[in-house]
Design a protein around this nucleic acid. Sequence first.
DNA 1: AGGCACCAACGTCACGATGT
DNA 2: ACATCGTGACGTTGGTGCCT
Length: 137
Amino acid sequence: MTNSGTPQPGATIVQYATQSGDGTQQFFVPGSQVVVQAATGDMPTYQIRTPTSSLPQGVVMAASPGSLHSPQQLSDEVTRKREHRLMKNREAARECRKKKKEYVKCLENRVAVLENQNKTLIEELKALKDLYCHKTE
DNA sequence: AGGCACCAACGTCACGATGT
DNA sequence: ACATCGTGACGTTGGTGCCT
């Protein structure tokens, strides 16, 4: 089991845009360690679908600059472009999931911290109330 | 052992956002 | 206008625990 992608020594800073439109939030992930099961290594376990009759995902039929080739070369080019796009997207999806996972972990950390703070403040308030009550007596 | 439900991780597609 | 990126949605796969 190895960690796919670039190794991240120590902590990580996660920056996320908020949906509510109040800019971005930046979190500190202490010693974040994302365990990614990458038993497959570079080779995806999924079968590579050959492009069928239609061209999915907005593939543009365009000749490479310079010279036009035979139909065979053209279709090879299209196939090659598609494979490249799929590979890029595969990596992007992995990265996106990793980022999301870290973000969730970060939120959970914040929840824990805030819960502690809340507890402390409640105790402090209670102590102050007690103090005040004894004073007024 | 085998069937089943559940979960995490994955690849792919579609689509909006952003850059050139 | 086009290319590229980021991400939600969906289906697939492999692992695991539970029940019969």
